[in-house]
Each structure stands twice: as C-alpha cells, then as structure tokens.
Simulated assay, not measured.
Amino acid sequence: MSRRSLFLLLVLSATWGASYLFIDLSLRGLSAPVVVFGRLAIGAAVLCVLARARHRRPFAALRGDWPRIALFALFEMVLPYLLIAFGQSRIATGTASLLVSTQMLWLVLLTPLMVRGARVRAVQLAGVGVGLVGVAALVQPFGAGGAPDPLGAVLVTLAAASYAIGSLLLGLLLPGRPTLPVTAAGQAVAAVLVAPVAAVGLPRAMPSAGTFGALAVLGVACTAGGFLLFNVLITRAGAGTASLVAYLAPVFSLAYGALVLHEPFTVPAAAGLVLIVAGTALTVSRRRRAVQPNTEPAPAAVRVGSTSTTR
C-alpha cells in the first residue's frame, strides 16, 4: 500500500468513525428522524451537485430503476440510519460503532439466502461465531459505556443486518449502474421516505447552532464525503485495501467517544473490539467462489468478503 493510499484509508476511517460522534451531538437538539432526514437531504444535495458536474445527464441511465433504487435505499439508508439514531440515543457511541461493524457477519449469513449458488466456508462461519462473542462482551452489564440498554443494542444490531441486506440488493437489483448517480438518487429517495416521519418529530424550540453544525458535518463530511473518499480509495488501491476501513473506523469511534464525550473505555469494550475485528477478518478471508462484485453506490458489498455501509 502506498503512503497516499494509507493516508486516504486513515482519513476515511476517521471520517466514518466520527459519524457516531456527530449523530450523538445532533441528537442533543433534534429527534432521531429529523437527524436522519437532515443527513440524507444534505448528503443527497452534495452528491447531486457532484453528479451533475461529472455527468452531463447523471440520472438518464437510471430510467426504470427507481422502484429498485427505492428498495435499495430502504434497506441501505432509511432503516439503518433510523435504527442507529434511535439505538444510539440509548447506548454509547463506541458500542454503536462496534455493533454496526458486525454487518460483515450478517453478510456471511444472508448471502446464501439471497444469492443463488453462493456458499460460505467454515472459516467464515467461525468468524461469525467469534464476532458474536465480541457482541456479547459489549452488551453484558460491564460492557462499553457501562450497563447498556438492551433495546438500543438490538436496534443497532438490526441496523447492521439491514446494511447487509442493502448491500446484497445493490448487486442483485442494480448491477453495472454508475456509482455516483445511484448513490445520489438513493439518498434523495431515502430523504423523501423519511420526510413524513421527520415532520412528526420536528423540535418545538429552535436547536442550538452547535446542533445544526453537527448535523451539517454529519451530512457533508460523514455521509457525502465518506462515500467519495471510499470510492477514491477503491480506485487507487482496490477493494481489498478499502475494506480495511471496517477494522479501523470503530477504533476511531471509540477514541472519539472517550476523548470528546468522555465515555469509559472498559476491558470488555477492548475485548469486544478485538473479537469483532477478528471475526470480521475471518469472514473476509479469501474463498474459492464468491458472489460477483459490482460497482458500489456507497460503501456497499455485493459479495462475501467486501466492505459495506453507507455511513
């Protein structure tokens, strides 16, 4: 890996790791649905502008694909963003980031159910087991951030499963579509889907400037910027190098939680981190036959062994 690629990997990991910090800061003045709508609307606006700058008619190739894009956006953006926002209001940011990183474990379990002919090796199933032990270390009474809220942990874990489903739907429903337009369209559709729920949860009092600033950073840097960095890294260093973000982003998130939010970093939290990273490493080990990769519109995986997530 070149120094430039290593730098991009670290910047991307730091950016995605910061998502949970800025979600937490946004939730201090806004409801979960409003935070989700805000980050989607901001991210979609930024990506649409960039898509128009790069492509003369960025959405022309997507004619007839809008129902598929809506289904993909539901599982890759709407459901996980809402579940994470609701769940993170109950658990520590570091715990949330580690639970979301289990999406690779879910991908291993769900791929054979959704992709015809896909098989999972025993070593990858072992990785799922190791990762689940790590989850247990996090959510037991002395885990990261103190005694966790079981509902919060369940919601964030379901978000990881939703990310895995969305990743698989991308490869099944939208093969070969241009990356930037699909992501911009997906985030725009997701914002529309979330808008009615967000309208019900509008704040009664004007939030602080800090709350709006956190939401702006979440939308511009963590949502739109993270996607762009991810694809630049894939172009420069390949998907294998880019997949390392799955290991590094939770480390940054835990650090942000400890340094900025003063969340405790306990021994079980460290154990959970090591076990989830080890389990993920096993799930992305090389296999003889994998689901054919596809152009990703957000850090999304279409095969067992690649990284996934629209942060």
Rank of each mutant, 00 (worst) to 15 (best):
P175N: 03
G17C: 04
A290E: 10
R4W: 11
T211R: 09
G240V: 11
R204Q: 12
T283H: 06
R68E: 01
A51V: 10
A191Q: 12
P297H: 09
F252D: 08
G17P: 13
R52F: 15
A53T: 10
V35G: 10
M1I: 07
P203H: 07
L282P: 04
L275M: 05
S243W: 12
A246D: 10
T179K: 15
V130E: 03
S2F: 04
L25Y: 07
T309K: 13
W16Q: 01
P141T: 02
A300L: 15
G87W: 06
F7W: 11
R119D: 00
A73K: 12
T280N: 13
V11G: 03
S308D: 10
A249D: 12
P250F: 06
T309C: 11
A300D: 08
P250T: 02
H55T: 03
V274Y: 03
V36D: 04
L79F: 13
A18T: 07
L83R: 02
A242G: 09
V100E: 00
P33F: 10
W16T: 00
T241H: 14
V100T: 07
G127S: 02
L21C: 06
A271T: 11
A301P: 00
S5N: 14
A53P: 02
L228V: 13
V194T: 09
N231Y: 05
A118E: 14
C222Y: 10
I234K: 14
V130N: 03
T235C: 05
T223M: 12
G17K: 08
T111L: 01
P268N: 00
V251L: 15
M206S: 13
Q292L: 15
S253F: 11
G257H: 11
T183W: 10
G210Q: 09
R3P: 09
A60V: 12
A255Q: 11
I234P: 06
G240P: 06
L62P: 13
A161P: 00
E76V: 10
L98M: 15
V302D: 09
R121L: 07
Q88W: 03
L180N: 03
S13T: 11
A205I: 10
V217E: 09
L215C: 05
P250I: 04
M104H: 09
G201P: 07
A224C: 03
G240Y: 06
V189L: 12
G127P: 07
H262W: 11
S167F: 02
A216S: 14
S306E: 15
G171E: 01
T223R: 08
T15C: 07
A184D: 05
G94V: 07
P297S: 06
L99W: 08
L275H: 00
A45N: 11
A45P: 14
G272R: 07
G117D: 08
A221P: 00
P264C: 04
R177F: 12
A246E: 12
I84Y: 01
R121D: 02
P250Y: 05
V232R: 15
R311K: 13
L10G: 06
A41E: 11
V220Y: 07
